[in-house]
Amino acid sequence: MNIFRLTGDLAHLTAIIILLLKIWKTRSCSGISGKSQILFTVVYITRYLDLFTNYISAYNTLMKIIFVVSSLATVFLIYFKFKATYDRNHDTFRMEFLIIPSIILALLIRHEFTVMEVLWTFSIYLEAVAILPQLFLVSKTGEAETITSHYLFALGSYRGLYLLNWIWRYYFENFLDWISIVAGFVQTVLYCDFFYLYVTRVLHGRKLRLPA
């Protein structure tokens, strides 16, 4: 464990908590893409199947369980409990456009051709693009609530911090996994436009509103 990975994990955890609290406190999931949340749930379930096969540490197990359970809870809040507030008219990105290419890519580019390894690789590829329905929804409505902006910032920072973690691990542990690195890089790049708006607007006390 190094400082980048720990802060990355904490940013990830913070993002999830911000989102759950926002929905719970405001009793509304408006401005949140249910599709991105479904995709993240698929990501965690397919990646953390190793919870059943090998034990790494209490930290690792606890975080994996938190991610799976909290993403299921978020999906439940959006599609069941606060269904009436869900922006379904704006959440129109097609999930299959992300899921199918991720499956094909995972079958082609992976380390080993085993069920667990292909599913792990699929989860890495899908995670890289899972935020697209959410970014699409924000661009369609032209704005995001400030709390939603904080959520996106925390979630985007997490993989960026993991990139620093991989540089660290390459130098100090001789650890290198191109699949994670390239997907993590793509994932972080997708947030760049948002990061720019977040720093120039939200941090200056204004609402995130897209330029016309």
Partner: peptide, 10 residues
């Protein structure tokens, strides 16, 4: 070896 070690990440 490398594949095993990345499994400690989330």
């Amino acid at each position: 070896k490398l594949i095993k070690r990345r499994k400690d990440e989330l």
